[in-house]
């Protein structure tokens, strides 16, 4: 009985920490994005509120909260609000299978810094990740307006194609690790002294394409398409309800997909890797904290890479996007799976 309450307490603490990360950092990332975008375009960005605009997210939040709440005529109120929940909940749930670091002991209890280490963690990531399509589809339909509907149709088309591609792309690392659990995949990479990116560069490139498509970033942001669709399916949303959609799509999903990429291809919390030889840890002086710092560093680096792409590239057309998915990406991943499945047993068994 005693251990049950301890387990419950640990789970609640983990949930609170994860929610804090997801929503707190998510809001703060709006500032990061604006700063990065500004410096890419050689302007200072937000400077007025706080030191270098650090309090800008707070000011934005207050502004969004105090805005007038408009509702489109003949719209469907229930689905309109359901769409917001459907966007937020699955995207946040994905964090429950992201491992932040290795197991550690505190007050004699062993704690894994992952909310639930299910042995099908990766499948859950993609199942929950693609739930986002319902939020978009319902938001587009319930708004009773043309632009949101077009946007939601586009997004659904993109998501359906890239969901297939991303699932096939991660098969390579799964074959190498021999497990679907996110925690064990990282452990396997440390055991084999190998980041899977060295053997799976094709899978990584395809994964990044699909991840960009899923979180609706440029070059795949056809559902927002500010120039043609005036921010797409969120047109009819106002105030904080509007604010939640980019928060979920760009920041929370961006963070989870970067974290999963780090887990799959960059060895999770392990330090810099020299293939087949071992690990070099320039941050050794941090002691037991070093794995967590490495995980955060790698995820941040990937996230900044995504931001860099977003503010550099032009936009694809919708037919080019789906053509890419089915005609280039899917054959590439199939090729990759066959090669990996043939080579992996020769190398390790």
């Amino acid at each position: 009985m005693h251990s049950f309450w301890v387990d419950l307490l640990v789970a609640i603490i983990k949930i609170l920490v994860i929610l804090g990360i997801a929503l707190g950092i998510g809001a703060f990332l709006t500032w990061v994005e604006r700063k990065v975008a500004a410096h890419i375009q050689r302007r200072p960005g937000p400077m007025v509120v706080g030191w270098h605009g650090l309090l800008q997210p707070l000011a934005d939040g207050v502004k969004l909260l105090t805005k007038e709440d408009l509702f489109p005529r003949y719209g469907d109120k229930f689905l309109y609000h359901l769409a917001i929940i459907l966007a937020l909940v699955p995207a946040t749930l994905v964090f429950s299978v992201v491992p932040f670091g290795p197991e550690f002991e505190i007050f004699g209890y062993k704690v894994k810094p992952i909310l639930s280490d299910v042995n099908v963690g990766l499948l859950l990531v993609f199942a929950l990740g693609s739930m986002a399509v319902y939020a978009v589809a319902l938001a587009g339909w319930a708004s009773n307006s043309k632009y949101p509907l077009i946007a939601s149709m586009r997004k659904a088309g993109v998501l359906v194609s890239y969901e297939v591609v991303i699932t096939f792309a991660v098969m390579g690392p799964i074959i190498l690790a021999g497990t679907l659990s996110t925690y064990e995949i990282v452990e396997k990479q440390i055991e084999q002294k190998l980041w899977y990116i060295w053997l799976q560069p094709i899978a990584f490139v395809v994964y990044m394409f699909a991840a960009l498509a899923e979180m609706g970033r440029v070059p795949f942001d056809v559902q927002e398409a500010e120039a043609e669709l005036v921010t797409g399916f969120t047109v009819e949303y106002g105030g904080m309800k509007f604010g939640l959609f980019p928060l979920v799509e760009w920041y929370i999903e961006g963070l989870t997909l970067s974290a999963i990429a780090v887990v799959l291809f960059f060895g999770g919390w392990s330090p810099i890797n020299i293939p087949f030889v071992g690990f070099v840890d320039p941050l050794f002086f941090l002691g037991p904290l070093s794995p967590f710092v490495w995980f955060i560093l790698k995820t941040t680096a990937l996230f900044l890479f995504i931001l860099w792409l977003h503010w550099t590239l032009p936009r694809y057309r919708i037919d080019q996007i789906t053509q890419n998915a089915w005609k280039i990406m899917l054959p590439l991943t199939l090729f990759n799976i066959v090669i990996t499945a043939v080579l992996a047993p020769i190398v390790w068994r």
Partner: peptide, 20 residues
């Protein structure tokens, strides 16, 4: 997980697309 991935996402989404 397969129930979520195949039924709840892959199949039900086509109903949504058609009906919406």
């Amino acid at each position: 997980a397969l129930q979520l991935l195949i039924y709840a996402v892959a199949i039900a989404i086509f109903y949504i697309i058609v009906i919406s």
